[in-house]
Design a protein around this nucleic acid. Structure first.
Length: 274
DNA sequence: CTCAGATCCTGTGCGC
DNA sequence: TGCGCACAGGATCTGA
């Protein structure tokens, strides 16, 4: 469900509730997520203070006295702050109960998400070692990305959605970035010119920054910790607009499947590299 | 090695 | 109203 701007929005919303709070205990109601949860291992976070929260790609890391509590929302994960007396619903799989009696409740119908506790430096953890740069840092630049294109024949959309290349870009923001950079999502990565890669890098940064400012994109049910939707949905120019007129040229937007994901594009504004 | 497709899982919305 | 199917914001594995 959430991409980088949504995770960043959630992180910002969580900080005032969780910073310097102490975990009392966790309640696990359903342990088969993306990795089977070990309640024993998660229980090691009991009585630990949360000093801050880090976002890396689409992962959230609660920084504890010793180690990290990692949360990934997968496609359908949600977090909300509730009172201990609030009755859990159908897919409310985990409660993180704070000493101050507030509860961080995790809901995830499809259970593609993850919760882990580990003590090593997160940068050396196997989930993180292969990750590409954060898109909103200086490490993600045209020179870097152009080097990575290196004769690859895969579709550029799959390329920018690959976490090893750059983190945080999912189907919505890949679609939006490619439209803004005027690149066909099916274009072979290795055929991109340096100028196109440069446009793409700038487009990814712009789109993500604007989306963070708008509090993310709510398609169906994304909301921040306060329950508010994200307003970037009003700024989507291409995602979800199949058969509607392109905002630039009025031609009808087309759709194709790339890497199993729906991909809309304007056949006029986004010519295929050949 | 690279890349396209299948896979994990449940919910929703559509056409019949 | 109900059924079956396609599809949904992610990440990883398989096999060609």
């Amino acid at each position: 469900m959430p991409e980088l701007p949504e995770i960043e929005t959630i992180k910002q919303g969580l900080l005032p509730y969780l910073t310097n709070q102490v975990i009392d205990y966790l309640i696990v109601r359903h342990s088969t997520l993306r990795f089977p949860l070990s309640p024993t291992i998660l229980a090691q976070s009991n009585n630990q203070r949360i000093s801050t929260i880090i976002r890396r790609g689409k992962y959230l890391l609660f920084v504890l006295d010793k180690g990290y509590l990692l949360i990934h929302l997968g496609m359908s994960g949600h977090l909300k702050i509730v009172n201990p007396t609030d009755t859990p619903g159908k897919h409310d799989h985990i409660d993180l109960v704070l000493k101050n009696k507030l509860v961080l409740r995790y809901n995830d119908p499809r259970r593609f998400g993850a919760w882990l506790y580990f003590t090593e430096d997160f940068n050396t953890h196997s989930l993180f070692t292969a990750l590409g740069p954060e898109p909103l840092t200086e490490q993600f630049n045209s020179t870097y990305l152009y080097k990575k294109t290196n004769n690859k024949s895969l579709a550029v959309k799959s390329f920018i959605m690959d976490n090893k290349i750059v983190v945080g870009v999912g189907n919505i923001y890949a679609t939006e970035s490619l439209f803004r950079a005027k690149i066909h999502p099916q274009s072979k990565t290795g055929l991109l010119t340096f100028e196109q890669v440069d446009e793409l890098v700038q487009a990814i940064k712009e789109v993500l920054k604007q989306a963070i400012k708008a509090g993310g994109t709510t398609l169906q049910d994304f909301c921040d910790i306060e329950g508010k939707p994200g307003y970037f949905v009003n700024q989507l120019l291409m995602y979800g607009r199949y058969n509607k007129p392109c905002f630039t040229c009025k031609q009808l937007i087309q759709i194709t499947t790339i890497g199993g994901r729906s991909s809309t594009f304007c056949p006029n504004c986004q010519p295929l590299n050949v």
